[in-house]
Simulated assay, not measured.
Amino acid sequence: MTRIVDVGGHAPYRIAIGDGLLSDGAALASHVRGRHAMIVSDAHVTPLYARGVADALQAANPGLRCMVTCIPAGESAKSLDRFAELLRELADFGATRDACVFALGGGVVGDLAGFAAACWMRGIDCVQLPTTLLAMVDSSVGGKTAVDLPQGKNLVGAFHLPRAVFADTATLRTLPDRELRAGLAEVVKYGAIRDAAFLDWIETHADALLARDADTLAEAIARSCAHKAAIVERDPFERGERALLNFGHTFAHAIETEQGYGGLNHGEAVAVGMVCAARLSARLGMAVADDTQRLAALLRRLGLPVDVPAGLDPAALVAHMRLDKKAIAGRLRFVLWSGAGAAQVVPDVAEAEALAALG
C-alpha cells in the first residue's frame, strides 16, 4: 500500500510512501518537464539504486537524457566546493531551465542536490528520493536546502520546494542500524513538539520500529510527514511556527560543528540535543524533570545517545549556538517545551542556563 501525504501552500506537491517506488519510472518521469535529468547520489547509495532509477526513467521516457553523478558519502560532502562541482556538471551536461535534479540518498544528498537545483539558472525542478529514514521524515520535506561552512551547519542555502517526494521504504532494508536509529530521533521529535499521542504510539511500537516492521515504519513516516507538511505549508520560510521543527537542533548543530561533522551523526546529535532542550525547559520552570527522564528513556530504548560527548568544550558549544540561524542579534533562542506535544520558541535565554543544560 502506498501512503500519500499532500503538502499544500503556494507550490503544492505530494509525498508518496511505499515499497518499490524507485522502480516506478512512469511516476518518476511525470515530474520531468524537459529533456535533462541529473541523478545525484552518494558512494553508498549509487551502486545500490542509481542505475535502476536511471533505467526506469529512460524506459518511461526514451527521449530523456539522464546522467548519474556520485558524491562522497558523509556530511563533509555538503560543502561549497562540492556544490560548485555539481553546478559545473550541470553546465557540462547542458541542463536547461526545464531540467530536473533527482536527489537520491540521505539528507546530505538532498540538501546539496536541492541547493544546486535552487541555484542553477535561478532554479530548476528537484525531485527528492530519500533513502534513509531521517531524510524521509525530515530533510526531504519542506524545501530547505543548504551546505555547511567550517563555522556552522547549513549556513549557506535556499528554500527550494521539491516537485515531489518518493519515499521508497524498500531502501530501508539496506539501511545500517545506526542510520535507522538516527531517523527514529526525528520521528520522536514530532511527538515531542506537537503530538503527545504519537509519542505514546512510538513508545508502544519501539520494538517493531527497531525490527524494521514494514507497516510500522511506513505509518511512522506518514505520520511524521503529515506533521511536517502541516507546519511548512503554513510557514514555508520559517518566520514563525516552522522554527518548532528545530527542537533540539540548536544543541545538536553545535555538537556536530564542534566535532567537525565527524562524531555523532545528525540524528544522534538531535537525540542529545532534545534531551538538553528538555533539561533547559525544566531549568526555566517550563516543564517538570520527569518529562526529561521519559524522553531520555525512550531515546535510549531506541539505541540513541542522550549525553553530550565527552571532551567537548561547553564554551565552544555556546559560541556555535550564537551563530545558529535561530539566534537573533547574538542572543540565544531555543525551541523548548512544556511537556510532550507542547513546544514553543523561547527568546533571549541566558548563556549560563544553556551551559548548565549541557549536563
Rank of each mutant, 00 (worst) to 15 (best):
R181W: 01
A226I: 02
L299I: 00
E241H: 02
A329Y: 13
R279G: 11
K326C: 06
I17L: 01
S338L: 08
D81F: 07
M121A: 14
G339S: 06
D307S: 03
G94L: 03
A103G: 01
F166L: 13
L134P: 00
E85D: 15
H253K: 04
D24M: 01
R242Y: 14
A167W: 01
Y261P: 06
A208I: 05
E179D: 14
E179K: 08
F247W: 07
L161G: 12
V109L: 08
P130D: 10
G260A: 07
I71A: 12
A352S: 13
A84S: 14
T171R: 03
A208Y: 04
L175F: 08
A356M: 02
A296R: 08
D24S: 07
G74Q: 08
V7C: 01
T174R: 09
V318K: 03
V345I: 06
V308L: 01
D19K: 06
L317A: 01
R322C: 10
R35V: 13
C119F: 05
H249E: 07
D111T: 03
A350Q: 11
V68T: 15
T2R: 15
R163K: 09
G114C: 06
A343N: 09
D6I: 10
E75H: 02
L298E: 11
H10F: 13
L28F: 11
K228F: 08
G8S: 13
S23R: 14
T69H: 15
R181S: 00
T257Q: 10
G311I: 00
T2S: 13
P72Q: 01
D290L: 14
L133D: 13
P130Q: 12
Q344L: 15
V45E: 01
L28R: 12
G303F: 13
G330S: 02
G52C: 01
F198T: 08
I124A: 02
S140K: 12
A192N: 02
R212K: 07
V188R: 01
L175E: 06
A196D: 04
R239M: 14
G157D: 11
D6W: 06
D24F: 03
V156I: 15
V275M: 11
W120F: 00
V187M: 00
R212S: 05
A269R: 06
T96K: 14
V270L: 07
E203M: 10
L184E: 05
R82V: 13
A117E: 03
A60M: 04
V288G: 14
A357C: 02
D290C: 11
R301M: 06
L317W: 00
V345H: 02
V32A: 00
P309W: 02
T69M: 13
V318S: 07
E179F: 09
V346N: 12
L317I: 04
E75M: 06
A211K: 10
A277I: 03
L80P: 08
A222L: 03
A26E: 13
Q344H: 15
Q58R: 15
L21S: 08
T292M: 04
L298T: 14
G341M: 00
A278E: 04
R239V: 10
L245V: 02
G123D: 08
V288H: 13
E351D: 14
A287H: 00
S76I: 11
E75Q: 00
L28D: 12
P309T: 03
G330I: 06
